[in-house]
């Protein structure tokens, strides 16, 4: 077997008889070297930003009604971020456990413009243009409806899979005029899911899990009110489900919620929680102190692990939220420009 491989190498690489005889003498060593070389060649192909990973995508058809939008997505997502912005739904690309519907086309256009403006460009401004190229998702999948869990009376707003794909649900309810809903349904979700991607690459400090240890409840978190969750040191009830959700909820809420919201949340946290029945639930924790400590830890971790300034990102997002109308006008204008290529 070894000799067959060596014969092949001799022919393929036109080795001299001397080289060939050396190899035959030390055949096992050479085999190891060639194997290592082959593997190192594979490593060289990893994570190139010049070639798309979506090599099987069909070419865009200028006759298609969707051509201007698809071209804009190509220029604004596929080329710069190697990202497939999937607005045309396929069941096989979604969670088959739910009853779902596709996003409305007009909402997909708005969502694509808003995600670029409020999310990608915010990270670009603060962390530099290469940050999301390296760490950002490779697929964003839009779903029109929420993913309901009727038995639990909850709905999923977004998911992140393997640090690659972010799915945004409920896109048919998109209303760019309502910042609170935009954040609640989509952008808080995106920051939430992206924080998962980041901590899956570099784990967060283990000490984080000690702040609210013993108060996480993966089964009944949805029964907790905002007040109960805050008094236990969580930014939201969902954050009280498990430590990793707590960690990303702190980051996501810190980025998108304004100071009025945070003042109110910290006031809630400093008092005893009130449950759904209006009863006061006592606990020994100082929720405000815990939340502030958690924010500090997240801030430090983002800076040290990712060289990302959480406060700068928050300020940038806040500023961008005030520019939504002009971003949409500009985005539509750019999409329309691709109609010229159809003529």
């Amino acid at each position: 077997m070894t000799s067959v491989i060596l014969e092949t190498l001799k022919k393929e690489y036109k080795l001299t008889n001397y080289e060939y005889s050396l190899m035959r003498k030390n055949s096992k060593i050479w085999l190891l070297i060639w194997t290592a070389a082959l593997f190192s060649a594979c490593v060289r192909f990893e994570d190139s930003f010049t070639d798309s990973i979506f090599v099987d995508e069909p070419e865009l058809d200028p006759a298609s009604e969707l051509y201007p939008f698809d071209r804009w997505l190509e220029e604004n997502y596929l080329k710069p971020y190697n990202l497939d912005f999937r607005y045309r739904m396929q069941d096989k690309g979604s969670d088959m456990d739910y009853n779902l519907v596709p996003a409305k086309l007009e909402n997909s256009l708005e969502m694509a413009i808003l995600v670029k403006h409020l999310w990608f460009e915010a990270y670009n401004d603060v962390a530099g243009p290469d940050f999301l190229k390296q760490h950002g998702p490779r697929i964003i999948h839009l779903i029109g409806s929420a993913a309901y869990k009727p038995a639990l009376q909850t709905m999923v707003l977004g998911t992140a899979e393997a640090g690659i794909k972010i799915t945004l649900y409920n896109c048919n309810e998109l209303n760019p005029k309502n910042i609170d809903l935009l954040n609640e349904y989509y952008f808080e979700t995106m920051h939430h899911e992206f924080a998962h991607i980041l901590h899956q690459k570099k784990t967060y400090p283990k000490e984080f899990e000690t702040f609210s240890a013993g108060y996480y409840d993966p089964s009944y978190w949805q029964e907790r009110t905002d007040s109960e969750a805050a008094s236990l040191g969580f930014a939201s009830p969902y954050g009280s489900s498990q430590p990793r959700e707590d960690f990303v909820e702190i980051i996501a809420n810190y980025i998108v919620k304004d100071s009025v919201w945070w003042t109110d949340r910290l006031r809630m946290a400093s008092q005893s929680g009130v449950n759904r029945d209006g009863q006061v639930v006592d606990d020994p924790l100082d929720g405000q102190e815990i939340i502030e400590a958690k924010i500090d830890m997240c801030r430090k971790w983002l800076k040290e692990s990712w060289d990302l300034d959480l406060d700068s990102l928050r300020r940038n997002v806040t500023k961008r939220q005030l520019q939504i109308d002009s971003a949409l006008i500009e985005g539509y204008k750019k999409i329309d420009e691709y109609k010229n290529e159809q003529l």
Binding site: R88, M89, Q90, V101, L105, S145, P150
Partner: peptide
């Protein structure tokens, strides 16, 4: 496949339509 929302068809699949077996 009808892969972006078309009200006349997707109302039959929409978990939020309010018809059939209700929300979800």
């Amino acid at each position: 496949t009808f892969d972006t929302y078309n009200a006349a068809l997707h109302v039959f699949s929409d978990p939020n339509s309010g018809y059939g077996q209700g929300l979800g």
